[in-house]
């Protein structure tokens, strides 16, 4: 007979697997609501704590990401009260509308994330260096400007241009993949 899938050990394994598979998606959702890396990471940690504590309530077979995002959403709301809006940029109505959109778009966003890897490889090395330095842990616009020998203003402009390039590349990639 198979091991009971509801045994504590099995549930623990299941939790580890689900969290490992989906934490990037939860982070992405949080960052959409709280566009500050450190704040979003703090909230991810808080969210993961709550997910661990409430995992008994999760129904196996249902959508884990949607369930986790619901928890994440309430963490964002709680953070707003605690820190007086702190890094939460939008009012409640817009926050809710954006949150809903983000959850609905989860499958598309996963595809976009995958496609982005290919688009990053296609970037000119100089552009890739800039964008990676901007986003790597401990990096930032200043570091990226310094490392690639640009002024700060030029780096901001270049970053906006590269993001647009990547966004277009990702959209094209998905169109090509879904074309008959």
């Amino acid at each position: 007979m198979n091991a009971d899938s509801n045994s504590p050990a099995e549930r623990q394994k299941q939790l580890v697997r689900l969290l490992t598979q989906n934490q990037r998606r939860i982070f992405s959702y949080l960052y959409t609501l709280v566009p500050d890396r450190h704040a979003a990471e703090d909230l991810l940690q808080e969210t993961c704590m709550v997910i661990c504590e409430k995992f008994d309530e999760f129904q196996p077979g249902t959508d884990f990401v949607a369930w986790a995002c619901q928890i994440a959403y309430w963490e964002v709301r709680a953070a707003r009260q605690k820190f007086a809006r702190a890094k939460v940029v939008f009012d409640d109505a817009v926050l809710e509308a954006v949150a809903k959109t983000a959850v609905e778009m989860t499958p598309e966003l996963s595809e976009r994330h995958e496609a982005l890897a290919k688009c990053l490889e296609k970037l000119h090395p100089r552009d890739r260096e800039l964008i990676i330095t901007r986003y790597e842990p401990g990096g930032g616009v200043e570091a990226a400007a310094q490392r690639t020998g640009r002024t700060i203003v030029a780096a901001y402009k270049a970053l906006a241009r590269i993001r647009k390039l990547l966004q277009d590349c990702v959209s094209l990639q998905l169109k090509t993949e879904t074309a008959p």
Binding site: R24, F27, H113, L116, I131, I132, Y135, E136, R163, L166
Partner: peptide, 12 residues
């Protein structure tokens, strides 16, 4: 915003 979240991930 998700693009930026993904970039954090890849850069990490």
């Amino acid at each position: 915003l998700s693009l930026s979240a993904s970039l954090f991930d890849y850069a990490s």
